[in-house]
């Protein structure tokens, strides 16, 4: 879709992710350099562009892969864009934007002391790295596993690790935050999340199609019932509009189009999960069935990084900022 060759390979490598040992899975994607796709080779990344990164995010969503694949790539992109090394992300990691009240910075003789408490960071793990983006302080701070203090860890509805980031350390890797980086980061993250949601949506559609073709009731396959066929159609409509939204965010990149994709993604996620479960019947809500691996992700991701409501409001502010329909038209058509 964004890179068809990569799509095929990624599905091959990530197939069966839900049963895989996560360490083994991580090693195999590291061997392919995938966590650093979208980051220039000159900065220690794997090269490739945003389209490649989106394709990997979609593949991770489609295969319900329990590893921080694109999340690590996003964190690496922040580090590379800030001129910092990528070492802290060897076992994966995340980038977090932390507001003022959660972080205190103190200059000391030995360096910059960081005292922070950032609640509910998804993919925060004892072995992983963290990239702190601090808008008010104007800094980017890279932290390795050794820098993290005691933390309490839990999981979200998709079984992804969530931890409270607790820090009191001297940061060694610090850079100034380029003011243009923040909106670019927000846009990139929104688009990557949307692509991951799209991947999960695609998987819901294919699993549901298989099910309604195979399962017979009333002496015929479920899909022969018009109500069922129309439910399937509604799922594929969500897939279509989300695909278009992400493609537009990629081709006509801006914070506006990225957040538009994110708003569409959040709305499609719920609709698709609902119909997928409805058409799977009781079997779909068992632990044994694979459907929950993708639907639980859709539920978790709807409000992850930013909430869908936030994305809608942000797009709304953007189009109400101008006069007449100038901004609305520019956002949707690129016609100024």
């Amino acid at each position: 879709m964004f890179n068809d060759d990569l799509r095929a390979i990624a599905d091959d490598v990530l197939a069966g992710s839900t049963e895989a040992d996560t360490d083994t899975l991580w090693m195999s994607v590291v061997a392919l350099d995938w966590p650093l796709v979208g980051v220039p080779e000159s900065s220690g990344g794997a090269g490739g562009d945003l389209a490649d990164a989106l394709e990997l995010a979609a593949a991770a969503g489609r295969n319900a892969s329990p590893i921080p694949l694109w999340e690590t790539g996003l964190a690496a992109w922040v580090l590379a864009s800030s001129g910092l090394g990528l070492e802290v992300l060897q076992r994966g990691g995340v980038a977090v934007v932390a507001p003022d009240q959660q972080v205190r910075l103190e200059s000391s003789a030995t360096g910059l002391r960081v005292v922070a408490r950032v609640p509910a960071v998804t993919w925060l793990r004892p072995a992983g790295g963290v990239v702190l983006v601090l808008p008010s302080a104007g800094r980017v701070v890279a932290l390795g596993p050794g820098d993290l203090g005691p933390a309490s860890f839990s999981t979200n509805v998709a079984d992804e690790p969530v931890g409270d980031l607790v820090l009191d350390c001297t940061a060694e890797q610090v850079a100034d935050l380029d003011p243009a980086l923040l909106p670019a980061f927000e846009a990139r993250r929104a688009l990557l999340r949307s692509a991951a949601i799209l991947g999960a949506v695609e998987r819901c559609c294919s699993m549901t199609l298989d099910h309604v073709r195979d399962r017979h009731q009333f002496g015929k396959p479920l899909i022969a019932l018009q109500a069922v066929a129309h439910g399937l159609a509604d799922m594929t409509l969500e897939r279509r509009r989300l695909t278009s939204a992400v493609q537009e965010g990629l081709d006509r990149g801006s914070l506006g189009t990225a957040l538009a994709a994110r708003a569409v993604a959040g709305s499609s996620a719920g609709t698709v999960a609902r119909i997928a479960h409805q058409l799977h019947g009781a079997m779909g809500i068992t632990r044994e069935h694979q459907l929950h691996f993708v639907t639980r992700r859709l539920w978790a991701w709807t409000d992850q990084d930013v909430t869908t409501r936030y994305a809608e409001e942000a797009v709304g502010r953007l189009v109400l900022a101008g006069s007449g329909d100038d901004e609305l038209w520019a956002l949707s058509t690129d016609g100024r």
């Binding site: 509009r241 809608e312 953007l318």
Partner: peptide, 11 residues
């Protein structure tokens, strides 16, 4: 309005 604008981008 924002949710509609987002849908418009996709359409």
């Amino acid at each position: 309005i924002g949710a509609l604008a987002a849908r418009l981008v996709s359409l």
